[in-house]
Design a protein around this nucleic acid. Structure first.
Lengths: 225, 225
DNA sequence: TTCGAGCGTTAAGAACGCGTCAAGATGTCG
DNA sequence: CGACATCTTGACGCGTTCTTAACGCTCGAA
């Protein structure tokens, strides 16, 4: 499930948000001030941050800027301030969305979904990848084919995720190698051949004629949903 | 400058928006109903769409869904409706942001900047090249002609990209050779003849009378959208 | 008309990338 | 320590793609 970081100084609202979002099965991390927020985000990068503009220790805009310095995760701003100028400042500092208090939980949830969706983290929100032949539950790390569970090794999972994350898109071999084995392995095309073959053997209905893990000769591999 | 598509039925607001955004140097396309919007977007894919929910001919949510069917461009929704349910519906249909009327132009501009920033205005709508005869999806590395997918080899892709990246511009043969095969191959005009012919055979409706990959005798080649 | 230059077409061998298999190396758990 | 799973590495065959060369065509100039 996507990991959310809530930065809200008012304890009542912080708890309410945390409970509501946890009920929606999000992984929630809730902190009360900007410094703690930046530290928490650095320790375990969340998939999305919800930041209150009115914080005790620093301006919310600075928190946004601090996050934007090193990550591109979606940021939703909460604020009681009605002013246009605040909105503009926050958005230009790098926020992705701005919600004015009081707000409804439904709206916030919808905006979270929208932000995660375009952030690409939405695979986490809907962590089940389903095809005609097999199903991958990325969150639970379980794979099924024809009702039977199939066991994938860690490397196989890593490779499968790298492909499944961009459905229909061609991923160059070098990029897959860098993502799964590290940048130094970009030339070890052997690894790809071996592990793609194993994925196909375990997941495809007919491994010799793969329908979902497709080779684009000379270019890379593609996952077809 | 990024291209914006405005879908707003009220003429006064439509004009006001268009004027304001044009003053900000955006390329603006303003239409008054959903059907025209979908047609305009298909003709010239914009970098961002601003959609009013209350349209005369169809629900704004359907416009959003219609756009989402084939493109991932950022969509900002305008609405006078205060209801939570409308926001949730629009966001879940694929909208990226929701602005309630009345709104300030500064806020809208800030939200446009935020949407373009994360959409990566360049990659969002750019990598699809569409002609009467074929479609190239440069990001996904897929080519279609008449609904059927066509396979291009690595070199063919490379050459196609070099031409398609500069629509309507004449590219000298030496430049193409240098870009695809390397500076040392600038005299191997053979390669060009062979591979341009293959591109035409795979993509043009009538390869013997090419309409999109045009030869400029003595000069080079040109891609006509 | 003849000639030559530039372009389109075709075909063949060479080179490359991919799938496959299998054995050795490494790691993990009882 | 041993058993087992996983990862790494090398080698081979096969199909595709690239490279290269030759030929025919058109068009403008001599």
């Amino acid at each position: 499930m996507p990991r959310l970081l809530i930065v809200e100084d008012e304890p009542a609202l912080r708890r309410a948000l945390a409970i509501n979002l946890k009920a929606r099965r999000y992984d929630v991390d809730a902190v009360g001030d900007g410094a703690t927020a930046l530290r928490a985000a650095a320790a375990v990068p969340p998939d999305l941050a919800i930041v209150d503009l009115g914080l005790p220790d620093m301006d919310g805009v600075d928190v946004i800027a601090g996050l934007r310095g090193w990550t591109s995760l979606p940021i939703i701003v909460l604020s009681a301030r009605e002013g246009q100028a605040d909105k503009v400042d926050a958005l230009d500092a790098g926020a992705d969305d701005y919600v004015t208090k009081p707000f409804g939980m439904d709206e916030l949830l919808a905006r979270i979904r929208a932000a995660l969706r375009r952030g690409g983290a939405d695979i986490a929100a809907e962590p089940k990848v389903i095809t005609d032949d097999f199903t991958l539950d990325l969150a639970a790390k379980r794979a099924f084919r024809g009702g039977e569970e199939v066991k994938l090794t860690p490397t196989e999972w890593h490779l499968a995720e790298a492909l499944v994350r961009r459905p229909g898109v061609l991923v160059p071999g070098t990029q897959l190698l860098a993502e799964v084995w590290g940048p130094k392995y970009e030339r070890e095309t052997n690894y790809l051949r071996v592990y793609v073959a194993q994925l196909r053997r375990k997941l495809e209905a007919d491994p010799s004629q793969p329908r979902h893990f497709v080779t684009e000769p000379g270019l890379g591999y593609r996952f077809e949903p």
